[in-house]
Computed example of a mutant assay.
Amino acid sequence: MEEHAAPPTVYQVHGSTAPGGEARIRAATQTIPVDGSWASAPTGAPGPADLLAAAFAACLLKNVERSGKLLPFRYQRAEVDVRASRQDSPPRFTAFTYELRLVTDEPQRRIDLLHQNLRRHGTVYNTLAAVSEVDGTIVSVPPPVE
């Protein structure tokens, strides 16, 4: 019997800009202001590198939620800090590092399993890991005692 792979999921965004670098990206139902300026003072809006790091952070957080449902894995809160390192010549990202903090009472072996699932099932994670170094840690914080 011949296996058929599911067709790929397609995501579509729309971007626009005007002279001066005021740009916008429409993704899903949201419009995101983007700093599209060149050789001028930062506008305060995220630039392309910030958006890439944000996509990676969102991937990690979404997969914490996914794993919470599938494993199941108990947590009260998750936070992540991502650092993207780039070089100028040739222009590319060289590394992504992260620290994911979880408020959980899960034992360390379950936290390690969660981390393994984040690395294995994260689409953005795996895409970035194919072209740059990706490394991170999970820090668990016990829930407050009531």
Rank of each mutant, 00 (worst) to 15 (best):
P33K: 15
L70M: 03
E3A: 14
P33T: 15
E133H: 12
E2S: 06
Q108L: 15
P8Q: 11
R77E: 13
L100R: 05
A28C: 09
S132C: 10
L52V: 11
S85L: 15
E79F: 07
Y75W: 06
R26F: 02
E2F: 11
V34Y: 00
H115Q: 11
E79R: 10
L118Y: 09
R92E: 03
L100F: 07
T17P: 00
L128S: 01
A18E: 10
Q12K: 07
G44S: 07
G122D: 05
I111Q: 08
S16T: 08
P33N: 14
L100Y: 00
R66E: 08
H121G: 01
R77H: 07
L70Y: 10
G122L: 04
L102S: 04
V103P: 00
G20H: 02
A53H: 12
A84Y: 04
L51F: 08
Q87H: 02
D105E: 09
A28Q: 14
D88P: 14
G15F: 04
R109M: 07
E22C: 06
R74H: 11
R119Q: 06
Q30P: 00
A27Y: 03
F93H: 02
P46G: 05
D88E: 13
T17M: 02
D50N: 03
E99Y: 07
E106Q: 15
S89E: 13
T104Y: 07
T123S: 11
I32L: 13
L52M: 14
V13N: 01
T94V: 10
V103S: 06
T97P: 05
V131A: 10
L128Y: 05
V131I: 14
A58V: 08
R77Q: 14
I32S: 12
L71R: 14
L100P: 02
P46E: 09
R120W: 07
H115E: 14
A39G: 01
E106Y: 12
A130N: 05
A41T: 11
A78D: 01
L61D: 03
I111H: 02
D35W: 00
S89C: 09
V34T: 06
L70F: 07
P7T: 12
D81F: 02
D135W: 02
V124P: 00
R77M: 08
P143Q: 15
L128Q: 03
A54F: 08
P46I: 07
P46H: 12
R120E: 11
E22N: 09
P72D: 04
I25H: 00
Q87D: 01
V82Q: 15
Y98T: 02
Y125C: 01
S16W: 13
P42A: 15
E146S: 09
V141M: 08
M1Q: 06
M1N: 03
Q76H: 15
R120H: 14
A78P: 04
Y98E: 04
L102I: 09
L60G: 00
G15Q: 06
R92T: 07
L102W: 03
D88F: 04
A28H: 15
S67L: 10
G36P: 05
H4C: 00
L118A: 11
T94L: 07
R109T: 10
V80W: 02
F56R: 01
V103E: 15
A5E: 05
R92L: 10
A58R: 06
V34G: 03
A53R: 04
V134L: 09
G21I: 01
L102R: 03
Q116G: 04
Q116I: 03
V10F: 12
V131D: 11
V103Y: 00
V80N: 05
